[in-house]
Design a protein around this nucleic acid. Structure first.
Lengths: 336, 336
DNA sequence: CTGAAAGCGCTAACAG
DNA sequence: CTGTTAGCGCTTTCAG
């Protein structure tokens, strides 16, 4: 183990260990010659500063806690990749926990991260109940929510404009001639999902078409759920010419159900998703969707968090980025 | 911030702070009545122990560093999910870093994690050069390699039997009547990939068929790479009836290239992968592949690491799990 | 410019 | 059974 400590270095260098500390921290109050000599000796001895000890006295760990519902969900893992890389660039490391779509577990890992004295927490929450569940805790450590809107709540968050995104999606389908569009996967306990449905409903109203929503009582938007919902729907005859899904993962599940039923996409049925996960671009999937700018979300969340770490008393801020249509080949134009 | 410390609690409880510490750590040398009273007061005051301070004195952080090439690769993110959940169950948290397929970065984050005094490191290495690059560091902190075989090297690792897996795959294709099988994606600087190709070559020899290997000079096995290699291959007429890919992600890239070329899978061409990532099960992909038991790998790696943390002087151990064929619908039987 | 010394919050001897 | 005390390795006053 790297048992070389400041003291050891100091002894060898023949200076006090405060001097070594100063040499390494780039303090101005030290002679250039001593600094160089000390730094050289540190290297020779293979000294690496002990972050734990430093954290102890600085009352700052430079660790950011990241809580995601499930790291193996493509949207989450793409976000995590961006977050980790940018965080490191900013001098932070990421401690990652899965909440596994469980409010209690979410709270538990939140506390755990607090006990670890992380400087801040980025949270992709389980759902809108997370706010109530966590509000005593979020008051105690800088926290930024990603994705789940906390619209009128005193929390920091970044997200895309979900309503606008779904509105764009609906209008796009309409522009292709679709008049009967099914919305699939509205999650009950998620403000994000509420806002997405709203976008769909708004557009329907504006365009004068009849809305039709299949809700999702599961806390997650997985392939499996999309598959199950679509399968049930396909059991009986249906008249929709397009399905708009609340998430790409759901849409991919729909593809599966459609495939089994012999329904061809886009020939027999048009399909859209939301998120633009990387798999949606693959030709066998080739899903038209609404893009969430993941890297921008990650950067915005981290900037917001770091800002708040530096000024804990600042008031809450919200950043809403614009989603954009990504047109691929899962939708076709139909005659009137 | 949770500024309540042991001292504060001790003051309120009217005991020394060592007593509070004992009450919480479940020490036997304390009266049941005092313990109860102290614990109650801790709760009332909202005291949470400071892990950093504890780490400082215990010389143990209960943090495990995880270095992956890229967390948004499906294989990695599935592994990470399993690792995080099991680690937490064992009392550890995960600090995750991407090496971004870069040996220097890999070394850099490794040092960084050491400075953080993580108790151990789990590493999905960039390639076989990682061993040399890191050997001075791995000697200083318990480390377990996942995936990349360190066959004759003094390191701890867990992996599947890659050679056997590819042998099974090749034999399966042979059993379907394939006699001209292309192996796609052998990565130069990876022992794992070397072992996989070996499995293919062994099988070819044994079965008396001519091997044919397309190598991959890129450090990663991504969709993009699979697509590019296949596209180049499809440019000119080819006689293979099956392609065996070094990874599922490569195979999915091949699907894309085949699709663009009008080559139907499995009708015109059979295709196999390796890893069994979750996407491979989706009907539009529906890839026959070789399963890596990810959860078992994660558990084995963590058990091995924890074991080594407890007995740092123990000799190196290696665990090799068995891969298994997962038959889906990307391969068809052909006549002789 | 450099050294001495205090102390971050906690655990673990060592006394009582 | 409980209190006292000495650090863990580092940063940071405060003196010199």
């Amino acid at each position: 183990m790297g048992v070389v400590t400041l003291k050891d270095v100091a002894k060898v260098a023949g200076v006090s260990y405060a001097t070594v500390s100063r040499a390494l921290s780039g303090s101005p109050e030290i002679g250039e010659s001593t600094r160089k000599r000390v730094v050289r000796i540190c290297e020779e001895m293979g000294y690496t500063p002990n972050s734990v000890a430093r954290s102890m006295v600085m009352k700052r760990t430079n660790i950011i806690g990241l809580i995601v519902t499930s790291i193996d969900n493509p949207f989450m893992s793409e976000m995590t990749a961006h977050l980790e890389i940018y965080a490191r660039k900013c001098g932070y490391n990421l401690m990652v926990c899965n909440s596994s779509y469980d409010l209690n577990l979410e709270k538990e890992v939140f506390s755990l991260l607090m006990g670890r004295k992380v400087d801040g927490i980025i949270l992709i929450p389980v759902g809108n109940e997370s706010y109530d569940s966590l509000k005593n805790l979020t008051a105690q450590v800088p926290t930024v929510f990603i994705g789940e809107n906390m619209l009128d709540l005193p929390e920091n968050y970044v997200s895309v404009d979900n309503t606008n995104g779904m509105q764009q999606a609906t209008e796009y389908l309409y522009s292709l001639g679709h008049r009967s569009i099914l919305y699939l996967g509205a999650r009950e306990k998620s403000m994000t999902h509420q806002l997405r449905v709203d976008g769909y409903l708004n557009a329907c109203k504006k365009l004068g078409i009849e809305p039709n929503v299949i809700r999702n009582s599961d806390p997650r938007s997985s392939f499996r759920v999309g598959y199950a919902l679509a399968k049930a729907h396909f059991e009986t005859p249906f008249s929709e010419t397009a399905i708009l899904c609340a998430a790409d993962t759901l849409a991919i599940g729909v593809i599966q159900a459609a495939y089994e039923k012999g329904i061809r996409i886009p020939r027999d049925l048009s399909l859209m998703g939301f998120d633009n996960i990387s798999f949606s671009a693959l030709p066998p999937i080739d899903l038209t969707t609404v893009n969430q700018p993941k890297q921008e979300l990650a950067v915005a969340a981290l900037d917001m968090l770091i800002n708040r770490i530096k000024k804990p008393e600042a008031s809450h801020t919200k950043t809403i980025l614009s989603p954009s249509l990504v047109i691929r080949n899962s939708c076709r134009a139909i005659g009137d």
